[in-house]
Design a protein around this nucleic acid. Sequence first.
DNA 1: GCGGAATGTTATCGTCGCTTACATAAAATC
DNA 2: GATTTTATGTAAGCGACGATAACATTCCGC
Lengths: 219, 219
Amino acid sequence: MPTARRSRTSKVRASPVRGYHHGDLRQALVTAGLALIEAEGAEALSVREVARRAGVSSAAPFRHFPSRIALMTAIAEEAMRRFHREFVEALEKAPTDDPLARFRAIGIAYLRWAFRNPTHFQVLSDRTLFDFEGATELRRQDQEIRLAMEEAVKAAIAKDRLRSDDVRLLHLTGRGLVYGLARMQVDGHMPRWGVAEHEAQAMAEKALDLLAAGLAKPA
Amino acid sequence: MPTARRSRTSKVRASPVRGYHHGDLRQALVTAGLALIEAEGAEALSVREVARRAGVSSAAPFRHFPSRIALMTAIAEEAMRRFHREFVEALEKAPTDDPLARFRAIGIAYLRWAFRNPTHFQVLSDRTLFDFEGATELRRQDQEIRLAMEEAVKAAIAKDRLRSDDVRLLHLTGRGLVYGLARMQVDGHMPRWGVAEHEAQAMAEKALDLLAAGLAKPA
DNA sequence: GCGGAATGTTATCGTCGCTTACATAAAATC
DNA sequence: GATTTTATGTAAGCGACGATAACATTCCGC
């Protein structure tokens, strides 16, 4: 009945193979969601708004995700994929001979990503926003990041460089500080601490340096 | 017309003065909201659910709060009031002679409250959940807590006990760690770090001890 | 090409935050 | 102490949300 409403029927599809009606709606929704979160914050994300931005009806996303939380999980996985990529790159550049310097470099990489992608970091940190248990790939990458830090700690202990030999405690302390600094920034607590926007990241890195120096063996 | 439906007309008011129709609906809503958050988490709070629990219609809360965020702000202020009370008590018991021990005691008090009131801590940390600027009393109490920590740092510097003399940096480092540990717990990250529920608080306190020891002057 | 599976739309449901119109109880005024 | 005024409640309804069902279209295997 529709009298050839669009003459796109024979159009050659653009490089990302356009599949069915939309193309790759699933990926488009994830991308639109990430952009939305980046622009408006995680709490601004609604399934309908994402659908709007992808140019489809409000029910369309439910063909690809059973629930809002499932969509958020896919978005979180994409965010983690990006974080993981950057993190691994930083790891490769990090010193391997000096374990304490490596420990510090890992923390810096973590901080840097969080400060540059605050809303994405926010999503990844907040487990009420997505289904952590159901995000297999995300969990694996998260663990990989954790192991990198743990190994740096172990190496430092092996070289007898630290004032404690409790891997778990050292690990928790390092992560606690870095996580806290990133969270303070994301949660908007920095200004109240007399730390201006432009210097927040530098200050956070100095705080990490201070911890690293403090963890080093005194004698 | 109502034939003395209640014989309360001349009753001496109970300590929390029962006012109009409901009594003190405003306070009842705040209390119900706090209980709801404690039981179901901050994201479970809706104006309608709070109204339901207070036994009033879904529009009633809007007589006392112009918006959901205003209700959340009042709830946050009550949470902060409780936190502040406990914190001040701890401050009074904290050592005054040894600034580093005082610094540590302050951190422990902060951690302790966060671990025992995770959902309330969550609300206070997340500025998207309430109107921080509009919460005057909360802001004052928050600043008071911050000043207590800052003064401990200054005292420690004055006694030449720390490896840095940058108040702002030391302050940020201490708060960053404590905030991060509390946040990790609240955000549910502890288990993945091999830290079981029952030992999380003790571990967090040990991490704080480790930082305090590390900040102390080596020589 | 044809039939089913995959993927889209429209319409609808119940809940949410919030507003409006109305009702009633308490306080203020005389 | 009756009346007016103000404070506080309810009922009904709006638009947006997450989610589902019924229907339409497109793709893909045969």
